[in-house]
Amino acid sequence: MDTRTAVIARRRLFSSAHLYDQKKFSREENLATFGRCHTPHGHGHNYVLEIFVEGRIDERTKMVIDLTDLDSILLTVTDPLDHQHLNFDVAEFKEKVPTTENIALYLREKVRIELQTRHPSLKLKRLRLFETDDLWVEIE
């Protein structure tokens, strides 16, 4: 049996609104820390979540994971954020500031839980969250 592992990556797009606001800060502190990202209503992004999943190639299917399963995981984790205002509609970010870094950490935890439940032998190797085409966070 081939014990080597391979990696598969898949993306999903979701659109959300957010703003940067630290409740314990004064307005001046918020503006100094977050600049134009601190506004009453916020702004939106077309986020792109990209996950890299590593595991052995299945003997029968010759795949690491069925793309449909991977899409289902991506949908499960992004659906609660898609077309929502992260600060107002998502419990996680009522207190925590929805920076790209924090959203990436949140999604990483959710993906790991889904993988653990559905495919415990697979590992989340890397996660990228693109806020825009020219700015992204990567966790490995």
Binding site: L135, V137, E138
Partner: peptide, 10 residues
């Protein structure tokens, strides 16, 4: 775990 931030410029 390591975290990276990338900015692309032209």
């Amino acid at each position: 775990m390591k975290m990276q931030l990338t900015r692309e410029v032209t």
